[in-house]
Design a protein around this nucleic acid. Structure first.
Lengths: 351, 351
DNA sequence: TGTTAATTCGTGTACGTTAACGCATGTATT
DNA sequence: AATACATGCGTTAACGTACACGAATTAACA
């Protein structure tokens, strides 16, 4: 139960196989210079003893650092969303730094594919042991993944997933369900014949499928429950407040909207508009950003849906660490919880 | 920015101080056998170089294990709540096991102080480096903490806090606010003159202040918002279903209750009763247990409030690890997020 | 002054692994 | 037959720290 004291090491393996520890070491790292026969014998003994290398000794003896590449969007004034994953990444980095692991970070611009490609090209794969990547640009990412696969460099995705690749794991949201949940929360408040407005605010075309997926979830709820509310939708392709305000004004002039679902963190712009025009409507949006929080507390936003951006970064790095250092693999798909933030629990939220 | 290569070790310190590494080692562990003069000199150099011992080498060279004592309630049939913290604890244990840390667990019975004392007495403090404890029984815990303080053994609290002690940190809920939040959620649904019922189900007297704190938060919300709803309350001191059902029946006969707030995980019993009597009322309770989850999905429970029991255990152990091994301290008070679980997001919840 | 006992310190080995170095063999090339 | 070169392996010095052992120095006392 508690005492598996007799931890064997290379010495014991060597003794049993009648070879030197050098040879054992060679097969452990499958380097060349061992005959098939002895290699098999040693492998068998390793198997039999269920040998676990002592990682302390290993890292101590090996002077080379382990390097993880981190490829994520930069935090723009456009959105400070990516600050959070970065914080998580840096926390993890701090925790594993004592074990000789360092990070190399590559930031790309969410609005420009070219910047992504540029960063990718800058990476020297020959001195990188693992990769954490937010694969926003699908095609370009896939080209990169193929290179990684060739070199057998493990990688994990955060924030968005690409199917059909050998990623170690994915840490991020399940978008559909978050839209579905939003609809449910909305239903608590609206009446039978209320009109609902879905608002997409984004000029980042490549992110659009993100928003769409949430919208699908949202609409599905109404369909499944057979609710008859009118659901309007507006795409706002400029993110500055003036443009948003004007767009909303147009809609509101022609329709009597009583609840709004904003599909991303831009909900604060809508809240601001409602505030200024003194219109009180139910409002649901995404992400625990500074501006959103302000409107949440002040009452303009009813609910924020949030999916632990920081944790995505933290866990992503940790998954790489567990794999590279301890050869442990965890779950492949790690959907973040879909958190509901209100003015009452927001102070305790861990982003 | 990135390269603080020149990591100094005892060797360098010894060289600068014109002593041997043995002497340096002695002052590092402040053992005896070093003259004050050389000791001061070495200390000064350590300071100057901001020497950080290499923990890998340290743990490798030191054959002794580090032992953490874990003192928490056992999972009873009464409640399987404590299974979750335990899971978190065991996950953390798995992660730090490679670094020579082992756990000794002491389970006590929530219903019996004596069992707590009994477990405490069983612990041999001389071979324990740190303690994780759920200090449910305050007075008895305090006696124990004094002993720990004397031996300078660090400890962290989970689940409930005791003020005025040298605990490294606390990981657990802020109860008042979770009651407050529940009230807010309820307000979305109830009408002005609806009657509300608060239900306490517990025969564990010592846990009672937990429940009370939530009730206070709940009531405060109604007071602050100046809501005029009638709030009834019932204490149910037996936890078996029959007793709960009978108690509820009595209340419902005399009052027209339209929403119920159950102050702990026993909410499933209430849900079951509502189900059987075909009564539909808004229902809010606590904790992501198997039974609760079932009623949540099926629609009898509207919201579950949950505070990451697993994470409490995980983070508690990790805090001890960071302190004992890396001499790092984190925040003292770590209130868990107050999570809102509905049928729509429950599948993604991480307990 | 010599003897003894503290006190203060240096040396050596160990922890389990890595990896450079080098020594035997065996096989192919002139 | 002499030379070259590859293959298969053992030896050994690190990595940074812990700690036992014993040597040197000093203090104490006769």
């Amino acid at each position: 139960m508690e005492g598996n004291k007799e931890l064997v090491g290379v010495k014991e393996i060597a003794r049993r196989a009648n070879v030197s520890i050098g040879t054992v070491d060679r097969v452990l790292h499958n380097r060349t210079g061992v005959s098939k026969k002895t290699k098999d014998k040693i492998l068998a003994i390793i198997e039999e003893l269920a040998y676990q290398p002592n990682i302390l000794a290993r890292r101590l003896a090996s002077k080379k650092q382990i390097v993880f590449a981190v490829i994520i969007p930069s935090v723009s004034d456009e959105t400070d969303y990516w600050q959070e994953p970065l914080l998580g990444i840096e926390q993890a980095a701090g925790e594993i730094a004592p074990y000789g692991i360092i990070l190399k970070k590559y930031f790309y611009d969410l609005n420009h594919k070219t910047s992504f490609v540029q960063q990718i090209d800058q990476i020297d794969l020959s001195d990188i042991q693992a990769v954490l990547i937010a694969p926003i640009f699908i095609e370009e990412s896939e080209n990169f993944l193929i290179k990684l696969d060739k070199r057998k460099i493990p990688y994990v995705f955060i924030n968005s997933d690409i199917q059909g690749h050998n990623s170690l794991s994915y840490f991020g949201p399940e978008l559909y369900q978050s839209g579905y949940l939003s609809a449910h929360l909305m239903k608590y408040v609206i009446k039978e014949d209320d009109t609902i407005l879905i608002v997409n605010i984004s000029h980042e075309i490549d992110n659009h499928h993100h928003l769409l997926r949430k919208e699908q979830g949202f609409r599905s709820y109404f369909k499944e429950k057979d609710l008859k509310n009118t659901i309007l939708k507006i795409d706002i392709v400029q993110t500055d407040y003036q443009f948003v305000a004007t767009s909303l004004q147009t809609v509101f002039k022609e329709n009597n909207v009583s609840a709004i679902f904003v599909t991303n963190s831009r909900v604060s712009a809508v809240a601001k508009y409602l505030n200024q025009t003194n219109a009180r409507k139910m409002l649901i949006g995404f992400d625990y950003t500074k501006e959103n929080l302000q409107f949440l507390k002040q009452g303009s936003i009813d609910f924020l849906i949030c999916q632990k951006p920081r944790e995505q970064g933290y866990k992503g790095i940790m998954a790489l660490y567990q794999f590279v250092v301890h050869a442990k693999t965890g779950e492949k798909n790690n959907f973040m919880p879909i958190d509901i933030i209100t003015a009452q629990n927001c102070d305790f939220y861990i982003n």
